[in-house]
Amino acid sequence: MITVIVDTTSTFDDVMLKSTAWMQILTLCHMSRIEVVLPDVVLRETARHWEAGALEAIQIANGKIAGLKKSRERLVEMGIDTKGLVDSETVNAKADKSGFEEATREKLLSLGVRVEPIPEHVDVETILQRDLARKKPFSPSGKGFRDALVWETVKAVVLTSAANAKNFFVTNNTGDYCQAGGLAPELEAEVKNAAGKLLWVANLEELLKHGALAPMVAGLAKTSDELAKFLAFATTTRDEGAEPLPVEQVVKEAVISALENLNGEDVKTDNAATTGLNFSGLGIPSELEGLSIDAVDADASSLTWQTYETYDDTTLLIQAEIEAEITLDGFAYKSDVGYLVDDDGNIRMLEWDWNDHMAHVGTTVMARLSFQIRLEQGADFVEECEFEGAQPTWPASS
């Protein structure tokens, strides 16, 4: 499992969490592809930054409103028509820091983010001893109280992580946490016995380019507007007492989301050199190599599903199937391309001179894709939706 622990440096300039990077992180979290941890200290500090920004914005707006009124009065004195100038009322809104903090907390929790409190074992004495010893993240001047609380939260998460788990600490506060382009050795020493691994990245953009996350990001919605719509739907609060969404709707949304995540995935065919999702048996010529999914166009009306197991009386294991047209691109030796490319477009030439020996080609196949889903009864989203296999559509249609 990949866990992302975020410091205030990633919220300081984006307190509303609306950047593309934040929306991608929150989407992956809601889809259970990664786990996101926001220390409670970071949330509260973010609320403080929001309050300062809100007060400044109100002050600027009221200053401009006052200036507009004075300009209008001066223009009237000069006999100049002011019909195009509309007076505005003074902004009397309050910067409700506690309201912002509560709303942000609810939003994050609804998306699956862990807002992690300060570990119970951390008390004033713990922090005082760290300060007196001038241990990072405390600076020689004694600055670093909140940073120390964040680090104690990071440490607690890492020390309780599973074997081989990747824990990313996202912070650009390099002076307090880092040294020579990496996490400070004295901090690394505090988590050296952890089963999971702690990795440092400076910001969310750098994190999303990491090899562990980049393939996930490639399968997400392509535009910021699409991400925003997804997150808005995910955080919509239904009326108290409203009936749970029908299982069919939850399954459909999970499968459509899983299909989007297939983009960019490598596929395995009858060619022994290929690896990835098992697409063998779909009649893809073995001469094609390095195939990956470029697009998936599914027929939503073909979706079928059935519960094949129930345990603990609340957890459903479901198998869902859907027919889709899958566009793939890959490579073939130039010596094979002549008889592979056909007029029907089953194998298409994309670029002849990919290199001296290979051509870049594409193909399209029809398949019935199956997914294994784990769903808690009454939930509005699935716990897991994993690709299970691909079968040709022709036996079912014959």
Rank of each mutant, 00 (worst) to 15 (best):
G181W: 04
G182Q: 15
G182L: 04
G182H: 03
L183A: 01
L183D: 06
A184P: 13
P185K: 14
P185D: 03
P185Q: 00
E186I: 10
L187M: 05
L187Q: 00
E188W: 00
E188Y: 01
A189E: 05
K192Y: 07
K192I: 02
K192D: 00
N193K: 04
N193R: 08
A194K: 02
A195T: 10
K197Y: 08
K197W: 12
L199G: 10
L199R: 09
A202R: 15
N203Q: 06
L204M: 10
E205H: 15
E206W: 13
E206R: 06
L207Y: 07
L208K: 06
K209S: 08
K209H: 02
A212Y: 08
A212H: 15
P215T: 10
P215K: 13
P215V: 12
V217L: 02
V217Y: 12
A221K: 11
A221I: 06
K222T: 13
K222R: 04
K222A: 08
T223H: 01
E226G: 06
L227E: 01
A228V: 09
K229E: 14
K229L: 11
L231Y: 13
L231T: 09
L231W: 15
L231H: 14
A232D: 08
A232W: 10
F233D: 12
F233G: 06
A234G: 01
A234S: 12
A234D: 05
T236N: 08
T236Y: 01
T236W: 04
T237L: 05
T237I: 11
R238N: 07
E240Y: 02
E243K: 15
P244R: 07
L245M: 11
V247S: 12
E248I: 02
E248R: 15
Q249G: 01
V250G: 05
V250F: 11
V251N: 11
V255G: 01
I256D: 09
I256K: 11
A258T: 08
A258F: 06
L259A: 04
E260K: 12
E260P: 06
N261F: 02
N261M: 11
L262D: 04
L262T: 01
L262N: 00
N263D: 03
G264F: 01
G264K: 00
G264Q: 02
E265Y: 03
K268W: 07
T269I: 07
N271F: 13
A272C: 14
A273W: 10
T274G: 13
G276P: 05
L277Y: 00
N278D: 11
N278Q: 04
N278E: 07
G281M: 13
L282F: 12
L282E: 12
